[in-house]
Amino acid sequence: MADGDSMPPFANGTCIVGEYVETLDDLKKGKQYMFITTDGYTFKTFGKKNRKTLTVSADNTFYDSYDIALEDIVQIWRYVRGILPEDYKPYYLPEQTNLRSLIDEAKRSITNLENGILKINS
């Protein structure tokens, strides 16, 4: 079942149907997979295979890509279809790139303020 907001348009409670991936060579860049790891599971888009990790990303651009250690992977299932919950109602997230730029701008402003305070106190 899907949970969280990192993979729109899948809502909480969406049942993800997949096909078992036999080998890492079967992974295709830009395709969605369920990665079963020693820590749990995550539904992400495959980016690339590195020497000791796989780089994956969420479809929600608010979240950064990250790596999963190959040694932590138990199984991988390729996304085939999603079955939405009976009471599903679509929701629309705010413009993600605009939201991210606002957060980045706020971080820069805070850093500038901190640097200004440090200069005053020096």
Rank of each mutant, 00 (worst) to 15 (best):
R78C: 02
G4W: 01
F35P: 14
Y63H: 00
F10M: 15
F62L: 03
G30Y: 02
F35I: 12
R81W: 09
F46G: 03
G18D: 03
N112V: 00
D26S: 15
T111S: 07
P8D: 03
D87Q: 13
F10Q: 11
I83N: 04
K119M: 08
I16Y: 09
G4P: 02
Q96H: 02
I103R: 05
I76T: 07
D26F: 12
E114K: 09
F43Y: 14
A106H: 01
F46I: 02
I110V: 09
V17L: 11
A11N: 04
G40N: 06
S122A: 08
K29V: 03
G116D: 12
I73D: 02
C15R: 13
S6T: 10
Y66E: 01
Y33T: 06
E95D: 13
M7A: 04
T55K: 03
M34H: 13
G116M: 08
T42P: 07
E19Q: 05
S65V: 03
P94F: 02
P9G: 05
T37H: 09
R81E: 09
D26K: 14
D39C: 03
L27E: 08
D59I: 04
D26E: 15
K28S: 04
K29M: 03
K49W: 00
L70V: 04
Y79V: 02
A69I: 00
E105K: 10
L113R: 07
T111D: 07
K48E: 10
D3K: 10
I103P: 01
V17R: 05
K52D: 11
L93W: 08
E105I: 06
L84G: 05
R51L: 00
G116R: 13
Y88L: 06
N12D: 12
T53D: 14
I110Q: 08
I103L: 05
N112F: 04
